[in-house]
Amino acid sequence: MNTTPPTEAQDRPARLTVGVVGAGRVGPALAASLQLAGHRPVAVSGVSDASVRRAAALLPDVPVVCPAEVLRRAELVLLTVPDDALPGLVAGLAETGSVRPGQLLVHTSGRFGTAVLDPATRAGALPLALHPAMTFTGTRVDVQRLAGCSFGVTAPEPLRMAAEALVIEMGGEPEWIEEAARPLYHAALAIGANHLVTLVAQAMELLREAGVGAPDRMLGPLLGAALDNALRSGDAALTGPVARGDAGTVAAHVAELRKHAPQSVAGYLAMARTTADRALAHGLLKPALAEDLLDVLANVGDGTGAGGAPPPGDHPEEGGHPEEGDR
């Protein structure tokens, strides 16, 4: 993607001065994206060496100052700090008189809506919650990835158009989230993205243990297809031994994990139970096979049934030949 600002953005006067409080992976990227749209970053705060380097790379020539000075210089302030630090930061800025009436105060937390900005709102700030549903690297590639990225947006009704305009200027697509729904919204994203990273990293470790020389190359096409199928078809995309009701295979998996990666057993069992429940609810797993599978999962959970043989009561005739099932 070409990151050179369009001619009209370069030639017209900057519309808002932009400041960043918290030069983590998100803030500098959003400010750089706003700069491409014609706004003017004027200040950034960062404490660690990594933050200062990140700010210098994405926002060259923008001075690094304290948070209060960022608010003094900027009309639009991005508060891009960890979720747990945000309430204290906002309260502190309001108590010290750093917030100016009419100042746009934007946080990027997925968990919070605009209520967390209430101390600043009472001081006259205009509160916006703009959460990019994207994983960030802290490099310029993040600016490119914002194109088409959804933002979870919460704002007072009078500021709705302003919030939408800022998201669109960054190349994103606004998705309105009610204040009370923010924690659930954020939990869903954490399951879908953060936990995915953990699962993939764990899968690569296990493949290396099994002797695979390039786990990333092996997993890439498989994971790409699985993600595409899941986004298109939801639970109907489920395949594999749990969805097929292969209780013996699941037991064998757990037995091997106990030997080679015991720390992964709890996660495997939790995901297998959840997968079995969803497959059963959507008619993908036959009840008779589900009963045997859930028995195995209960037994291996307490360490009594992690053998590789199919459990008593298996009904292969109900599931068809193993090669006929989806894998």
Rank of each mutant, 00 (worst) to 15 (best):
P5Q: 01
E8N: 05
Q10P: 09
T17V: 08
A23H: 03
G24N: 04
V26L: 12
P28G: 03
A31M: 08
R40H: 14
G46C: 01
V47D: 09
S48T: 12
A50Q: 08
R54N: 02
A55W: 00
A57L: 05
V70L: 02
P82L: 03
P87R: 01
L89D: 00
L93C: 06
G97E: 02
V106M: 00
V106W: 02
S109P: 08
P127M: 02
M134T: 09
T135F: 08
T137E: 02
R140F: 12
R145V: 11
G152R: 11
V153T: 02
T154P: 13
A162I: 14
A162D: 14
A162T: 15
I168T: 12
M170V: 08
E175W: 15
H195G: 05
E209T: 14
D216L: 09
P221R: 08
S233E: 11
S233K: 11
D235E: 11
L238Y: 07
L238D: 00
D246W: 15
G248L: 10
A252H: 10
V254M: 06
L257K: 12
M271W: 14
A276G: 01
A279P: 05
L293K: 06
V296W: 12
T304C: 14
G305W: 11
A309P: 13
E318F: 15
P322C: 05
